[in-house]
């Protein structure tokens, strides 16, 4: 049988790698992808705990429902985030470095 550790550690690893990516990268698109990694780590842990509590059957589905909500919110976030990046790159001549974007405001 499977043990919980693999999935919990994978979710934790995905979250940490995503956090490192958010802090490390300055390209706005990379930030978006790193945030997706963090969301996936949290989702995986939710699904793992829902599976671990499969004995209490109807209530364990709350974890799956939460993951569904998070996935839809993440899709919305990606769409709006990419729209923001495109709008930003138009006004800043293709520069989407999140550190230098604020320096040209005068």
């Amino acid at each position: 049988m499977y043990s919980l550790d693999i999935f919990l550690l994978l979710g934790l690893g995905l979250f940490s790698i995503g956090l490192i990516g958010v802090l490390l990268r300055r390209n706005a698109l990379f930030l978006l992808m790193a945030v997706e990694l963090m969301l996936n780590g949290a989702n995986l842990i939710l699904v793992t705990f829902a599976r671990a509590h499969a004995d209490s059957m109807p209530a364990a589905m709350a974890g799956h429902v939460a993951v569904l909500v998070i996935i839809s919110v993440a899709a919305v976030e990606a769409a709006v985030g990419i729209a923001l990046i495109v709008a930003l790159s138009r006004t800043s001549q293709g520069n989407i470095n999140v550190d230098t974007l604020g320096e040209l405001q005068g």
């Binding site: 049988m1 919980l4 934790l12 671990a52 499969a54 004995d55």
Partner: peptide, 16 residues
């Protein structure tokens, strides 16, 4: 996170 999850590690996953 590993510290928080530490108490849960090692527990086998029961079949549904």
């Amino acid at each position: 996170g590993a510290g928080g999850l530490g108490g849960l590690l090692g527990e086998p996953l029961r079949p549904a």
